[in-house]
Amino acid sequence: MKFKFNLKREVKIIAAVVVVGIFIAFTERRQGDIAVRDITVKIENEQENHFLDEADVMKLMQLNLENLRGTGLNEVNLKEIEQRVKSEPFVKEGELYSDLKGNMVIRVELRRPIARIVRNDGPDGYIAEDGTIMPVSEKFTSRVVLISGGFVRQLLKQKNVNDTEEGKQLIALINTIREDEFWNAQIAQLDMDSKASITMYSQVGDERIEFGRPDNPELKFKKLRVFYKEILPRMGWNRYDRVNLEYEGQIVAE
């Protein structure tokens, strides 16, 4: 095996690395010498989730802009301020950086709720897309499926629903509902008993849907679709009080 050493090429590569290093060092030095002028807040998906606005983010940063103006950027602990923002449950991602004009820029991505936990003996909460448990907000109410029943106490003890197998199955079930136009419009509430067995309540119709544990959602929804598309149109929408999907290969309606 022959190895050719190209001195000219190697020198060019080393020179390029040195130039980049000098540029980075110069930029950092220059930024450190720049004084803070202003703070810019950029909130992604704010139009979908009005949980936080610019004023809320400023409060999370715990900064007094008037006192901060004129302070050198090298005197500001950007990482510490960034962590304050990221500690807020509504915030999925937070990034704080500075530009060459002396502006501090905070970019915030909000979590998206996919379900609301409701209970009579305490405050409600939201489940986010990533499974994080979030508090409710006085500013904004998200129109999502409701989760109730004895199992919600276990959910609220967790920081993230995905920490348990039942929680992972619940997230998968909720996403199955969200991603289907018909189920998203039809399923209003999931009532879970202490053993995570689910009874669903629909927007249209009075029947309760005994879904069982949140496993095999695709198979159970396939049977439920047969019930809605083939049985109810023939028998009438008010004919049944309950429909059970727990038995393999069967639909039990009474």
Rank of each mutant, 00 (worst) to 15 (best):
V152H: 00
D193R: 06
M235Y: 11
R153Y: 14
L173W: 01
D38A: 09
E138H: 09
M192R: 03
D121M: 03
F90Q: 04
M61A: 07
N238E: 12
V19S: 02
E218W: 00
D215Q: 12
I24P: 08
R234Y: 11
V105Q: 01
S197Q: 15
I251G: 09
L232V: 06
A25Y: 13
L100G: 12
E207A: 09
N49Q: 14
G94S: 09
D33G: 12
F227M: 04
M61V: 01
I39V: 03
E129C: 05
F211K: 01
D53I: 01
P113V: 01
S142K: 04
E75D: 15
D191M: 10
I34A: 03
D180G: 07
I171C: 06
L7I: 11
V85P: 06
A188W: 10
D241N: 14
F227I: 05
E93A: 13
I187Y: 02
I209Q: 05
N162E: 15
Q169K: 10
D193F: 05
R239T: 10
M235A: 05
D53Q: 00
R111W: 02
G131Q: 00
M61Q: 08
I174V: 08
V57K: 00
F182A: 00
L110P: 04
G94H: 04
R225F: 05
K223I: 11
G167T: 05
L190Q: 03
E218T: 15
Q186R: 04
T132A: 09
N67F: 12
K79I: 14
L110V: 07
L7P: 13
R116K: 13
M104F: 04
Y240D: 07
V57W: 07
K220M: 03
E80L: 12
P89D: 00
T199K: 01
I43S: 06
S98F: 13
R178V: 07
L155I: 08
L155V: 10
F51S: 00
K222C: 14
R208G: 07
K42H: 14
E48D: 00
K168I: 03
R225A: 09
V252A: 02
P233Q: 04
V108N: 02
F3H: 14
A196D: 01
R84W: 06
V105M: 06
S197H: 13
Q203Y: 10
E82C: 08
I187L: 07
K2S: 14
M58D: 09
H50V: 08
D130E: 07
S87K: 11
Y97R: 11
V18R: 04
L146H: 13
L219E: 15
D180S: 01
